[in-house]
Amino acid sequence: MTELRDMPAVMEVCDQLLKDVGCDFVALALQNEVGPDVRWHFASGNENDKYKRITVRFGKGIAGKIISSGSPMMISDFPNDIYGKVTDHPIMLAEKLVSCYAVPLFFNGSPKGVLLVGKRRTYTFIDNEQEMVKESAETLEQILKGHILGGGA
């Protein structure tokens, strides 16, 4: 699979989302082609490159949970309003995020990716912003459809 960082269309969507929602961080995670693990492939507004190295197990972490459940989730005040352990949220720790909203990306009817927006302060993402994230997720699904399926998933 070609690196998503090299795909300008993806970058564009993420940067636009960062601007529109007014958040600090946008990232895109995809499930590995082989095996159930999930990796972050692209980020905007990142403080470091840790996200590139983070691999979460299916069902673990924010990305893993969203892919296994197929539904969006929000954290408003990390680490005070989370289920489970602080260490189950590596992307929040790595980027020092305090709030985030994340939605699943569907390919072929099953959740295979995650689009996450986050802020480094307590915040509750309002309906309007949630809609924007969902719309961007749909756009990304379209862009990546050929990429993922063509990549032999």
């Binding site: 490159d49 840790k50 190295r53 983070i54 691999t55 260490t87 590596p90 720790l93």
Partner: peptide, 8 residues
């Protein structure tokens, strides 16, 4: 651990 948290 390194993989989970992206730390070298």
């Amino acid at each position: 651990f390194g993989q989970r948290f992206g730390i070298q």
